[in-house]
Design a protein around this nucleic acid. Sequence first.
DNA 1: CATATATGTAACTTCAGACATTACATATGA
DNA 2: TCATATGTAATGTCTGAAGTTACATATATG
Lengths: 156, 156
Amino acid sequence: MIEEPKGQAMQLDGRLSRMMHLLIHMDRANGPITSGEAAEMLHTNPVVIRRTMAGLRDVGFVRSIKGHAGGWTLLKPLESISMLDVYKAVGQPRIFAIGLADPAPDCLVEQAVNASMTSALEKAEALLIAQLGEVTLAAIAKDFDRRFSASCASSP
Amino acid sequence: MIEEPKGQAMQLDGRLSRMMHLLIHMDRANGPITSGEAAEMLHTNPVVIRRTMAGLRDVGFVRSIKGHAGGWTLLKPLESISMLDVYKAVGQPRIFAIGLADPAPDCLVEQAVNASMTSALEKAEALLIAQLGEVTLAAIAKDFDRRFSASCASSP
DNA sequence: CATATATGTAACTTCAGACATTACATATGA
DNA sequence: TCATATGTAATGTCTGAAGTTACATATATG
């Protein structure tokens, strides 16, 4: 009998997921969104927002304005931003939680093991990157619209 | 300019990699290998060996014998053990370090984001699992033999 | 210009999980 | 009996995302 992996929410890197979520909200907003407002949407802290958004600002996806009536503004259309773009903008977080015990071992057996592991991981990573590159935030926003219509239809 | 991911060795789950390494050594060994000997091979601690090998014992890949002349013995041929088998035996560790900020959000935008993220991750995971299932430890051992011959040829 | 409002950052703290280590119980062959 | 192994609980270590506090800086508005 093999144990199932733990089903609870553990310490995953949620930066990609969070920033996609926020960018779509920003696209829907009229004016700038403050870090405080964004933090409420994402159920987190304003500092976490600024910290993570910094990467998106550096690549020109958003702009930040200080002071009264300041906040964050989307600069590019969602059509031009892929999931992969966001992944890169948040610093290309490590993808896998599993990996090699020693990346450069003396033992030839371990070198052979590493070669097989690396090959498998690289193929999976390449597919993931390809998938992220194929989906734009606009496509996700469109999917949201579909879900929104569906939810309205079911609540009379 | 996008930052490269950190290149250092951080806390990856190395159980799959370690156990594959050890199983191949056990196949090459004459008698049982003690936890202490195994720990030296893997540059770790005997307790870590026992803890991780427990899963392999539970599925019948190895046997452990206590006391004098005891230790660990491989029970199945490497041909019959795939990387995936070992992955399952060590408890199917979590594969990804990235993931959803909230797996069950109220926000429909976030639900759409989650759907896209999950789709991409699931495809990558499926490919990884397929890759792990295609390679037996025997194939890795054979690759080791190739490397061993090559290393002998280059040292006169 | 003073002030409320925002962002920008540094400096913690918290948290989870693999791995490391110690300690001791238990089993077993010489 | 006793040295040798495994079995396992308990505890410490380490890493990085996320959370939090504190304060500096910038900027509309009265």
